[in-house]
Amino acid sequence: MTAQLLEVDGLGKRFGGFVALDGVDLSIAPGERVGLIGPNGSGKSTLVNCLCGTLANETGSVRFDGRDLSGLVAHQRTRLGMARSFQLPRPFPSMTVGDNLRIPLLYAVNARPGAAHLSVAETRERCAELLGLVGLAGRVHDYPRDLTQVDMRKLELARAMASDPKLLIADEAMAGLSHSEVSDIVALLVRLNERGITVILIEHIMRAVMSFSQRLVVLVSGKKIADGRPDEVIRDAEVERAYLGQ
């Protein structure tokens, strides 16, 4: 077996009596594009939060890039190269678009052990490059409140990308967007993947998931019920019953 980028083993989390995650196993190879689907309340967001260190898992372990992540808090995981975007965009409202991107550059990239500090000019250059990549070029001095829904999503992804991650976890990056905007974001994610970044896409919009994913993982009631090629998974009887049948 080749070295996996992410190895999740028996991950469990409960809230009081409610079991949110029930022994989830998942492994993801470097460079993969993985879609994660499941009905509301199936534990997708809990999984993301446990992976990123926002919540602490009760059982199981997460290994990332050959390192056990237990006990590491969110910012430490970001610094190791795991980035996320939030379901509802959470920009820093008091800062310009450019400064929003500057934060991960200052606090994740510059804080990485052994990495050279970016100079002011390099930081500015990197900001411009990231904004160009997501299609927000020229909006560096705008404030988040001036952005449209889709631009806000792009900023969210750009900020996640600014930390120079190995793995990007995009949590419902397209909810509420129009048909063409969804295609926009999918194209963007594919572009990022082509730059060598592994991507996990959590999404409800099946069209987006199917066109993006090389592999599809289905979560129902905190359990993984399917994991494989998208066209096969989608025909799986159990998946159909538990998820698509609803």
Binding site: P104, Y107, R159
Partner: peptide, 22 residues
């Protein structure tokens, strides 16, 4: 840099952590 970090805490702590801010 410290001041920028402080401002992210005021704005949104969860997003700050996700951006690598301790």
């Amino acid at each position: 840099r410290l001041g920028f970090g402080f401002a992210t805490i005021r704005d949104d702590e969860l997003a700050a952590e996700a951006s690598g801010v301790p």
